[in-house]
Design a protein around this nucleic acid. Structure first.
Lengths: 204, 204, 204, 204
DNA sequence: CATGAATGAGCTTTCATTCAT
DNA sequence: AATGAATGAAAGCTCATTCAT
């Protein structure tokens, strides 16, 4: 990575500034200057840390995927009960508001870089890891005797991730028929059906 | 609409050219020239029919939503059996390939125009209409005695649409874990679970 | 003149439409389409009657100078008294409002065509003819015993025309310190001083 | 003002280049490139210092009005005799040649921006200040016993300014009947008549 | 490391002009 | 004569990128 040496604090500051800038202006209108303004530095500084705009966006995407996954993984760390794990994943997986900069940036960059050799694998890796998280929770629930799965475990896990993705998209697009609260209900409803576990709820 | 009179054939030709151009270059890189080239006209002609790029994109989006919904509605027209209806909707709702220009354009424009006053309502209208289609099929299946629904009918319908949306996104993003074939299986699996109807299949 | 044959009515209609268009949009923003719209014809028609925009403007200018001079000459035709002649010239020479399309067009075109070999002589000819009108009225007034001139007759005549020009400019520029009414007072004041004739007034 | 910080020297250089460009090409044909060429910079630089062409022209006009007035005011500073003051004002107020870039720019912009909310007040302010200068000189001449005014002092002052304006216009339009030398004679003639002071001359 | 003035490629947009009908 | 769809040259404007300080 070209910018490994150059004071990691400034680097992170610029990445966070980019997340905000993408949320505010959309990735299509994103200018170096937007990032610089939000970070309180000059445009030259942005170029010093990231050779060009493409690299900045690449790095933001990598950072965001990592952060997104890590955050969710940590949310499970100390939860022993599969039912609570599943609930926590749903809760963490759906944005609290339509202004979630992390989620917006990930979807914007996905779109913006569609077909790119760099991004494709990263996206898929994230997807697969998320599937793995649901897989693990479902598996555990079966072992703990809480879940009786209504279908193949991989299929259910993939559908969980897909529902999450879809509601992320609707939330950041401002779809009023799929508010954060409603989206949680709907995914939880899916969870109850496919696990046969009617006790599932977000605030257990 | 400014371009109502100016020879509708040329207008449609330009809209189709725009769909192709968005698929090939991504909406963020879309140039007037890309549209003109694909339509075999000059850039001036594009401006003659659509005042500016924003209006072109608006009109493409409106056209695409309309076409998308109409296509699916027609797919149901002559199907009396709810099971076949549901299968047909799933089949029509998931792109056959990652190059589906209509689906790509709709998703690209959604994100590109996030927060736009024009687009938001249109997106939501499309979502609500799609939900209505699933609602109708599920309702019919219950009446025909084929379906025993595992949850509230509206919730199920919304989740159907969301799964579709998510798989559309993954397919056009080239996610290999969610191919068109696999996506159909997964949504169909969901359908079997929530309808309690194990006979559901795409080619009945 | 290229357009001599082509139905003079349509030609005049287009010239009048151009006057309005220049007043409304300024000569710098004047488009063929503005003329066409105001004349209720298509842009093609404008091109049919005037080969290009330059020629249209040339013809409008020629027409306007002619009309401007002729109007003023006619205002004097049946006035035998030099005092009334002078008053009539002042009255006719200063625009009644800041929206006088003829005056606006003449000044706009002067500016627009500054340095042009075509326009320069035309402007000067108009100036000289206006000077001649004042010269004639002053000369007559002396002969009739009404005027005792305070300076060389040519100098006075030139200053009359210049004052008029200046107030035309200020009026169409919307200068509130030089309204049509005030401009008339001021030029009339000048007239009284240089003719020594205190009876001069606009409505004798 | 957006360009307050960005190196005032470069800013002034660009304004001077614009004056030349307007004189050479006319304001209606003025291109950013004309300014850039004359200043020896790239077009991007012009946009960097003045957001767009309109703002450049606004700023040039403001600058020109200020400069025009200041120059004339300074010409009076150390002249105690009202007769010499008046002569100096006439001399400073009429362009020495038809290529006076400052005067050309002011007249061009006046007409170009006719009806603009920004320009109107500025024009009028300049007019009123010029009137005030003549007012002051006339008043002083009366007090000094040199002048016996032939009419109301304000009227005379306004006519002085108007004559100047008119001759400026004729000079930059290349009217041969109103050369710089001749214009000076004519305004001076007016001055002698209305002040009753026959000693007035440009080079006392 | 940081700055911000300067650059110029690349795009959109406008509009006079042409021409088939 | 008149139309208006189509053209394409000509500008303006944006913004990533460079570089001297």
């Amino acid at each position: 990575m070209a910018s490994a040496k150059k004071t990691p604090e400034r680097r992170d500051q610029l990445i966070l500034a980019t997340l905000d800038a993408i949320r505010d202006r959309g990735i299509a209108n994103l200018r170096i200057q937007d990032v610089a303004e939000r970070a309180g530095v000059s445009t030259g500084t942005v170029h010093y840390h990231f050779n060009d705009l493409d690299q900045l966006i690449d790095d933001v995407y990598t950072w965001a995927c990592e952060r997104f996954y890590t955050t969710r993984l940590q949310a499970l760390a100390d939860i022993p009960d599969a039912r609570e794990q599943l609930a926590a994943m749903i809760d963490a997986g759906i944005p609290k508001s339509e202004d979630d900069a992390l989620v917006i940036a990930m979807h914007d960059i996905d779109l913006f870089r569609r077909g790119s050799a760099t991004m494709g694998p990263l996206l898929q890796a994230l997807y697969d890891r998320q599937v793995a998280l649901y897989f693990a929770a479902l598996q555990l629930g079966v072992a703990q005797g809480h879940f009786r799965l209504a279908g193949p475990i991989i299929d259910l896990a993939q559908n969980f991730v897909s529902l999450e993705d879809a509601y992320e998209l609707h939330i950041i697009s401002g779809n009023r028929s799929a508010s954060p609260r409603r989206a949680r209900e709907l995914v939880l409803g899916y969870a109850r059906i496919v696990t046969g576990c009617s006790e599932l709820s977000l605030h257990h």
